[in-house]
């Protein structure tokens, strides 16, 4: 999931009696699955949480362009190059829809970008890992986009109209992304011994970080409970993670690859896979800036933004001149 651990600013879940009439009417609309639209009244905490969640998601799309972009110039065939370029381009597009969705809540894209560049805003931990081989491009599509889809498909039904609509568009493209990732893995897994080894190595490195994408267990989190009440979060982190493992393990088996977890076993009683302990220390280190690529990712983003400033300024200046000329001509 691209937004991890979104805080809601609440310390407990309000009962209906504690709510103001406006809050109660709002919650009733949400309960009745009526979409909330930008101009309608909404609790401030709902608005702020959504801004946080949508912008985290948007930032993840934008930062996520880097690990994959890393292989665009080295893609092994013209077809693979075109597909990868189109995929990374889609991510820029997703970022754009999501920033637009966030803008309906009263923040500007520039403000959100400044938050990202200053290190204040978070993005998904997964993009702080490096892409070392071509197989990593396959593994990202298969695992990372696969995990993102798990989270985003339910969000198509979320309570906030613009977010829900952005998610519908995004999910269509994400499922194509996942297929292209799996297709790369299939080619590698059925290729030369070196290619197969490359695929296994990528799975080894991306498996655990992919499971971490869903965030720590939030069974007892008041923030998650509140977000679920608002229907901007649909499933718990553990639920989605389990679903992801259940879906992905047979796919790995089909590829003839081994999931790097000695504790992984099918639990017939539960009807799910049991899996090993996740290293949450690593997760918190990465989230807090100590992943292998945090500094590099942020520096690259800031560089692009700063080096592009004169271009954006020029475009604004030209547009203003043009408008002034048109006005002068009309007068």
């Amino acid at each position: 999931m691209y937004a991890q651990m979104v805080k809601t600013g609440v310390d407990h879940i309000q009962s209906k009696e504690e709510m103001s009439p406006e809050e109660r009417a709002f919650q009733e609309r949400v309960d009745a699955d009526i979409k909330i639209e930008p101009k309608e009244w909404m609790p401030e905490a709902y608005r702020k949480t959504l801004v946080r969640q949508i912008s985290q998601h948007a930032h993840s799309e934008i930062i996520g362009m880097q690990p994959e972009g890393n292989w665009i110039t080295r893609a092994p065939t013209l077809e693979r190059k075109a597909i990868l370029l189109a995929k990374v381009q889609d991510e820029a597009g997703h970022g754009l829809y999501l920033y637009c969705a966030a803008e309906t809540l009263g923040v500007t894209r520039d403000e959100l970008m400044e938050q990202l560049n200053s290190g204040k805003a978070k993005y998904s931990s997964i993009f702080n890992y490096p892409t070392l081989t071509w197989a990593d491009i396959g593994a990202i599509g298969w695992l990372v986009d696969g995990a993102a889809i798990m989270n985003q498909v339910p969000l198509q039904r979320c309570s906030y109209g613009p977010y829900s609509r952005a998610m519908i568009r995004i999910c269509k493209e994400e499922s194509f992304h996942q297929r292209q990732g799996y297709d790369i893995m299939m080619k590698l897994a059925s290729g030369t011994p070196e290619q197969k080894q490359m695929a296994q190595d990528a799975l080894n490195r991306w498996w655990w970080p992919s499971l971490m994408m869903f965030g720590p267990s939030d069974a007892d989190s008041v923030h998650s409970a509140q977000s679920m009440r608002w229907k901007i979060k649909i499933n718990s982190n553990d639920e989605l993670r389990q679903k992801f493992v259940d879906q992905t393990v047979p796919q790995a088996e089909y590829l003839g690859l081994t999931v790097p977890d000695p504790d992984l076993t099918w639990n017939a009683e539960r009807g799910h896979y049991d899996f090993g302990k996740i290293d949450w220390d690593e997760f918190y280190q990465v989230i807090n800036g100590n992943g292998p690529c945090n500094r590099q990712r942020l520096r690259t983003r800031v560089k692009a933004y700063e080096e592009g400033r004169w271009v954006r300024d020029a475009a604004d200046a030209y547009a203003a001149k043009k408008a002034a000329r048109a006005k002068a001509q009309a007068a």
Binding site: I62, Q66, L85, A86, V88, Q89, A92, Y99, A304, V311
Partner: peptide, 27 residues
């Protein structure tokens, strides 16, 4: 294609990639 992810604005990441994709297709 080297620009992808490094353009002055998201709109330009999209546009430069579009042109690159056209050219790869022509190639």
């Amino acid at each position: 294609s080297e620009w992808c992810g490094h353009a002055p604005a998201l709109e330009e990441d999209l546009a430069l990639s579009n042109v690159a994709l056209d050219l790869i297709g022509q190639t």
